[in-house]
Design a protein around this nucleic acid. Structure first.
Lengths: 165, 165
DNA sequence: CCTTAACTTCACAAATTTCTGAAAGAAGCG
DNA sequence: CGCTTCTTTCAGAAATTTGTGAAGTTAAGG
């Protein structure tokens, strides 16, 4: 079978990847539609798709696309672009941006830390439970710093391995 | 009001911490009951509670405790113990074990990597999309190694700061 | 301005998940 | 062995989440 659109992509392999990768994301806690939209973008040739293309490829309503994209944009996993001189919007994965977002759980960590800090205070730092919470808190604070430097190393590693990308 | 049990803990502060920390865990994707049980254990004096104590403190049925504990045990966040010579079971947070479990997403990473590898294969490593997936795959492989060494450093840091715990 | 092509919001139906009471299943203890 | 105490399983009620169609909103293009 000859392939016409794109370079050696048939819709079926793409869809197979999209669904299986999305399934993993869902299992890790992402909303289903967001996961599917995201996977579709990842697997697209340019890393850019319009709302219509997404709805078409994934067989979902414009409303579903809208909801998914809102979530993905909020979490910085995709960015929205406006094709100049058109009301058509395009959504893009930035290749090197999205997994930064993925590990960028800083806001989450901060909230955990806040909850733990309150726990230490109200239970008392000199009680066994208080000490347990304090240690947990220390762990998250440690992680927060480490993750930052880990991403630093990744960028370096990436540059060496993939060039400017 | 004088406090009798434990050292300066009143049920209300404990409950307040439990619920607010559990809420964070839920937001991060954990089942509600599992999160509440886990938080209760974290905030308990000895890090150990029986099924009855949990049900009582959290106002949930034995069935709910059972389900929550099964999940937590599977993910290695708590361990089950049998009080010798009793059918009563006790559940424990290990203090230094649970956050290892938390970051020990190795199985998850492996599955993501598998899905990506398949994507690279079927889309072709020489296509733009294939390259994007390959880079993502490289990222996860990088992370996997880094997280391991990060935990190594944490153990060291922890020992220095908290002693044997 | 009016039309039209998009995207978004909203109310609701459907599917899924969650928690419970009740019954069944283990295991100590007499 | 049978009784008693605790845990687990299971079916179903209740609550929550999810995706859709339809109406609403915005902005381009005549």
């Amino acid at each position: 079978m000859t392939e016409s659109a794109g370079a050696g992509r048939d819709a079926e392999s793409v869809s197979k990847f999209v669904e299986s990768f999305a399934a993993q994301l869902v299992e890790a806690g992402m909303q289903r539609m967001a996961a599917r939209v995201f996977a579709a973008l990842l697997a697209s040739d340019k890393g850019v798709l319009t709302s219509a293309e997404l709805g078409d490829q994934l067989q979902i309503s414009p409303a579903a696309v809208s909801g998914a994209v809102r979530y993905l944009a909020q979490t910085h996993m995709v960015s929205r672009e406006r094709e100049p001189g058109s009301r058509r919007e395009r959504y893009r994965v930035h290749g090197d941006q999205w997994y930064e977002a993925l590990t960028n759980r800083e806001a989450v960590l901060k909230r955990w830390e806040a909850a733990l800090r309150e726990g230490v205070n109200s239970l008392g730092g000199d009680t066994p439970a208080g000490r347990r919470l304090a240690e947990t808190l220390a762990f998250f604070e440690f992680i927060e710093v480490e993750v930052a430097s880990m991403m630093e190393r990744w960028r370096e590693h990436r540059e060496k391995t993939f060039g400017q990308g």
